[in-house]
């Protein structure tokens, strides 16, 4: 049972870590200074949430594991983040689209996770929800600004949402581990969050004067991340992230 819980925590932590890492790549490259700082703040919030989760997993596992064990010493197939989050940052609209889809998901997810039968996860959800509420405000407002902006920004925002849409479905498709956790009252039923998520996204997209719906008729989506089947991009992220620990194992500073 503990094994499944650790696996589940790992999925949540990997989502936050990989999203945070991608956003951290904007540091020094933001379109303007203030947005650069905002994206870095959001990156740090995500990495902070990942740390709390990895730390919890390490406590359950024991055996000398620490919060660093998971991000630095696992390989691609052991990461269980959703594919959406490992996609490259693209242009600013691409990143904002990715943020909108994920922030909206996290908002409803953490709201539900506050009621988890696992007190530690409920506490992490409570803390993270405040951060995510701000992230969602940031990404939603930028979708509206770009969508309802110039012809060029509108086109880029529309393309960005269309391109990321097929990766969002995976967030709501429970894996076997998730089903087990839902059964035990530890995880919220993510499948049930999809309608309210889509409703909220539709409102934002409408406010941004963009077009909706974007999904194809069959509602097909990309998936695999939750099972460890990733896009080619994750390997490059890990190469960056793990370089120092792999070159100088267990180094500290």
């Amino acid at each position: 049972m503990n094994n499944s819980l650790v696996e589940y925590i790992m999925h949540l932590a990997d989502n936050s870590l990989i999203h945070g890492h991608r956003l951290s790549e904007w540091c020094g490259h933001g379109p303007i200074l203030e947005v650069d700082i905002a994206l870095s703040n959001i990156a740090l919030d995500n990495i902070g949430a990942a740390r709390s989760l990895y730390e919890y997993a390490a406590e359950i596992e024991g055996n000398g594991k620490t919060e660093d064990t998971y991000p630095y010493f696992r390989d691609v197939r052991q990461f269980k983040n959703s594919l959406l989050l490992e996609l490259p940052n693209g242009n600013f609209a691409d990143t904002i689209a990715k943020c909108l889809l994920f922030d909206t998901y996290q908002f409803y997810f953490y709201t539900a996770l506050k009621n988890s039968s696992d007190n530690r996860l409920a506490a992490i959800a409570e803390k993270s929800l405040k951060e995510v509420t701000y992230h969602l405000r940031f990404s939603s407002e930028w979708v509206v600004r770009l969508g309802d902006g110039t012809d060029e920004s509108k086109q880029k925002m529309q393309n960005a949402i269309a391109e990321h849409w097929e990766y969002a479905g995976e967030l709501f498709a429970p894996s076997n581990i998730e089903l087990e956790m839902i059964e035990q009252g530890i995880a919220p039923n993510i499948d049930a969050l999809k309608d309210v998520w889509q409703q909220k996204i539709a409102e934002t997209i409408e406010e941004a004067t963009l077009s909706f719906p974007l999904s194809n008729e069959k509602g097909w989506f990309q998936s695999g991340g939750k099972k460890g089947i990733h896009t080619e991009y994750l390997g490059f992220i890990l190469a960056d992230l793990q370089y120092m620990q792999k070159t100088y194992p267990n180094s500290e500073w």
């Binding site: 200074l33 905002a38 703040n41 407002e141 600004r145």
Partner: peptide, 20 residues
Amino acid sequence: SLHAADSTMAIEMARDVYTR
């Protein structure tokens, strides 16, 4: 001081830049 398109953006950017 900072550059922003409107007051909402100014306050949020101020939050990110000056209250972290």
